[in-house]
């Protein structure tokens, strides 16, 4: 809760949203995955995108990262239109974003330190010693000092997430994306990762977009929560408002209840018989 209070007032000189999504629609083949998403992320806030499996939250994240091209709709990240941007401009934009993937996505042939240095090696002209110091600094921040020479295969689940976070912040991004940061971790480690995300935001002031299905984690770190369900945004609001929501589907999600299947006789018969009615 303290996190929400802390960020409510963040009167930066530039108050334009860092991410703006307008009317985003996307299909996998004939299946509509996202259906008219509108969303904004404000500077310095932690926005949690929450939803169950198949809600479209991973797809939405991939769109925000420019890994997928939407069927229709527009996404602006740091003022740049992802549909229009290309070439060097795209590379430069990507240098201002940091991403911590669900499984870490550390390069298995590189040590932890080399993983964290890679963005610096590829995008800056610093000398190697300086890059090493910068990478070690980030390792200190995520409490992984002393593990820099291990290979990713030698790390535990929590350490992988920390290393991934360190790599994501090594270029001091304006926006940090975290995909399921606490999934697959025991509760103690998961809580520590949540706290780490809060600390990083407090120290670096970047915006953070977290995709998760873990309620506890979402409530702990979010300034605002975007609830996604079947490709649509049900609500985007503060933690307190989401907790108090009386929307039946949000209540289902909060109470961890399975949803009642919609009873549609025609669709049911169609599924069973395969005949187009």
């Amino acid at each position: 809760m303290s996190a929400a209070a802390q960020t409510a007032a963040d009167p930066g000189p530039d108050n334009a949203p860092v991410i703006e999504v307008r009317g985003l629609v996307t299909h996998y083949g004939p299946r509509k995955i996202l259906d008219g998403i509108d969303l904004e992320v404000q500077p310095g806030e932690i926005l949690v995108i929450m939803g169950g499996s198949g809600s479209g939250k991973s797809t939405l994240l991939n769109h925000l990262l420019g890994l997928l091209v939407p069927t229709s709709g527009a996404i602006r990240v740091l003022g740049e239109d992802l549909n229009a941007i290309d070439g060097v401009a795209r590379t430069l934009l990507r240098q201002r974003l940091g991403v911590a993937f669900q499984g870490g996505a550390l390069f298995s042939s590189l040590s932890v330190l080399e993983n964290i240095m890679l963005p610096l090696i590829e995008h800056t002209r610093l000398d190697r010693k300086t890059m090493e110091i910068m990478a070690r600094l980030k390792l200190e921040v995520v409490n992984l000092a002393g593990f820099e020479h291990l290979m990713p295969a030698e790390l535990s689940g929590g350490m992988i997430k920390r290393a991934a976070l360190a790599r994501a912040i090594v270029m001091d991004p304006r926006i940090l994306f975290c995909d399921e940061p606490s999934a697959g971790l025991d509760p103690v480690v998961a809580t520590a990762i949540d706290q780490l995300i809060l600390d990083l935001r407090a120290a670096m002031g970047m915006s953070v977009v977290v995709v998760t299905h873990e309620l506890e984690s979402a409530f702990k770190i979010a300034d605002r929560i975007c609830v996604l369900d079947r490709g649509k945004v049900l609500a985007v609001d503060t933690v307190a408002a989401i907790r108090a929501s009386d929307h039946p589907r949000i209540r289902n999600l909060l109470n961890r209840q399975g949803e009642d299947p919609d009873l549609d006789v025609d669709a049911y018969l169609e599924r069973l018989t395969g005949i187009d009615l």
Partner: peptide
């Protein structure tokens, strides 16, 4: 193939490394 299923290719892309 391993890099792909571990999302390492995605990680390269979002780092701005083609």
């Amino acid at each position: 193939g391993t890099m792909r299923i571990n999302q390492e290719i995605d990680a390269l892309t979002v780092m701005g490394i083609n």
